[in-house]
């Protein structure tokens, strides 16, 4: 069983559209959406939810105002300024460290498990899918990411699937780290802009730190052919192979509006490029 994770340092480079096309071309993979705070893959693959579970992570402090004597001990020790002057805990600021719970002489503080999202096991026209939705403003998305990836492995083992395709999270922080650790291969989708190059270099540094092999796809290559070349050079410096480039093509947006993968819509410049890249994924990475 192989796990291929598709990420992009910078957002909006086409990572999810590419994942959906790969899912269509692979035809027999388990799909995972790890972009849990702005999950979009479901828009293109229409999962039919078979099972939904609650996701709890961390705790939040709650002060029982009936017991609290307003002695201020908790406010003095809280480093996150989460307790206001009327002794109400702001759940956004509360880190769940429990220091207030331990310091309160009246035992007026309780730590409550925090419901911060849901995760789902679904069926799509391309195969099973595990995905999640973190409630807005919640943290711990790294843990939710780890959870959906683990669930996908369970399903892949049970159903004898040989490939897990993961739509990873953007950035270089906790959710991305959680998306890539232990994966077999990471594919980075980059766009040819100075920001795209900057973010690609940051994300390659992160992934190579975990000693996971990397390849790169450049999307919208013709927006700046010069930077496309610089990206190819930069990828080489990080020991990454460039699998191919995709031209800017309105048909990608058209397919998205129809809520389909671009390779499902007949021939198009972008679709053809994606098919070629998928063939290279199969021969160079998955074989």
């Amino acid at each position: 069983m192989r796990e291929l994770v598709i990420i992009s340092g910078k957002g909006g480079t086409g990572k999810t559209s590419l994942t959906a096309s790969f899912a269509c071309l692979a035809a027999d993979a388990v799909l995972v959406d790890c972009d849990v705070d702005a999950a979009d893959l479901h828009i293109l693959v229409h999962p039919e939810v078979k099972c939904a579970e609650e996701f709890r992570g961390g705790v939040k402090a709650i002060i029982d105002r009936g017991i609290c004597t307003e002695c201020a001990a908790c406010r003095e020790v809280c480093r996150f300024n989460a307790i206001d002057d009327s002794y109400v805990v702001n759940p956004v600021s509360c880190e769940g460290c429990g220091v207030c719970f331990h310091v309160c002489p009246e035992k007026a503080v309780e730590l409550e498990e925090n419901l911060c999202g849901r995760w789902f096991v679904s069926e799509t026209r391309f195969g099973p899918m595990v995905h999640a939705a973190l409630f807005p403003g919640e943290e711990n998305s790294g843990k939710l990411v780890a959870l959906v990836r683990n669930q996908a492995k369970v399903i892949a083992r049970r159903e004898g699937k040989s490939l897990i395709l993961v739509d990873g999270a953007p950035g270089v922080g906790c959710p991305v780290i959680s998306s890539v650790t232990g994966a077999d291969h990471v594919l980075v989708v980059a766009e040819p802009s100075l920001s795209g190059l900057h973010d690609l270099e940051r994300v390659c540094k992160l992934v190579s730190g975990f000693r996971i092999p990397i390849s790169v796809v450049v999307n919208k290559r013709d927006i700046n052919p010069l930077i496309t070349e610089r990206i190819e050079a930069s990828a080489g410096n990080h020991g990454a192979q460039v699998l191919g480039t995709v031209p800017y093509d309105d048909s990608v947006i058209k397919a998205m509006v129809q809520r389909r993968a671009v390779v499902e819509n007949g021939l198009s410049a972008a679709g053809n490029a994606v098919r070629e890249i998928w063939d290279r994924v199969k021969t160079r990475i998955l074989s």
Partner: peptide, 14 residues
């Protein structure tokens, strides 16, 4: 602000 809607975004916009 960072993209998305999770903890870092809230920290940035609050």
């Amino acid at each position: 602000a960072p993209p998305g809607a999770s903890c870092p975004v809230i920290t940035a916009v609050s």
